[in-house]
Computed example of a mutant assay.
Amino acid sequence: MPAPNTSTSRTRSSSSLARTLAESGVFDLVYGHHAHVAQPWEQINGVWVVYGGGNLVGQMRVNTPRAWEQYLARITFERRGDVPDGERPYAAAKAEYLPLLMTLSEPGKPARVLDVNKSLADGTGDTARLTTAKEQIAKAVRLLGAEGIEEIGAVR
Rank of each mutant, 00 (worst) to 15 (best):
E23G: 01
Q70S: 14
S24T: 12
E23R: 11
W48R: 06
G54L: 07
G32Y: 04
V47H: 03
V57H: 00
D28Q: 15
Y31P: 01
G53P: 01
T76N: 05
V47R: 11
R74S: 13
G32L: 11
V62N: 03
N55G: 14
W48S: 05
V62W: 02
P40C: 14
V49Q: 01
D28W: 10
N45H: 15
W48M: 11
T76S: 06
G53L: 03
N55D: 11
E42T: 11
W48N: 08
G46L: 14
N45R: 14
A22L: 11
W41Q: 13
G25Q: 13
H36P: 00
S24R: 11
R66C: 08
V30W: 00
A73C: 13
V37S: 00
V30K: 01
M60N: 04
Q43H: 11
V62G: 00
F27T: 10
L56M: 05
W41P: 03
G52Y: 02
P65N: 05
Q59L: 03
A73P: 15
R61E: 09
A35W: 01
N55K: 01
A22P: 04
G32F: 06
G53C: 14
A35D: 04
R61A: 03
V47A: 06
L29I: 04
A22C: 10
Y51D: 10
W48Q: 07
E23V: 08
G25M: 11
F27R: 06
Q59V: 03
V47Y: 09
H33K: 04
P40S: 15
V47E: 08
H36A: 02
Q59H: 01
G46C: 06
P65K: 05
M60V: 00
A22H: 08
Y31T: 02
P65S: 08
N45A: 15
N45I: 07
D28I: 06
H33N: 12
I44Q: 12
Y51V: 08
R61V: 03
A67G: 06
R66Q: 15
V50F: 08
F77T: 12
V57G: 04
A22V: 09
V62H: 00
Q59C: 00
H33I: 03
T64E: 02
N55H: 02
N45W: 00
V37F: 02
P40Y: 14
E42K: 12
Q59A: 03
W41T: 10
A73S: 15
Y51G: 07
W48P: 13
L29S: 07
F27D: 12
P40T: 15
R66Y: 08
G58Y: 00
Q59N: 02
Q43D: 15
V49E: 05
A73Y: 09
V50A: 13
S24A: 15
E69W: 03
V62P: 00
Q59Y: 00
P65V: 03
R66M: 13
F77P: 14
H34I: 09
L21C: 07
H33Q: 05
V62C: 01
W41V: 09
G46T: 12
E42S: 10
L21Y: 10
W41C: 14
E42R: 11
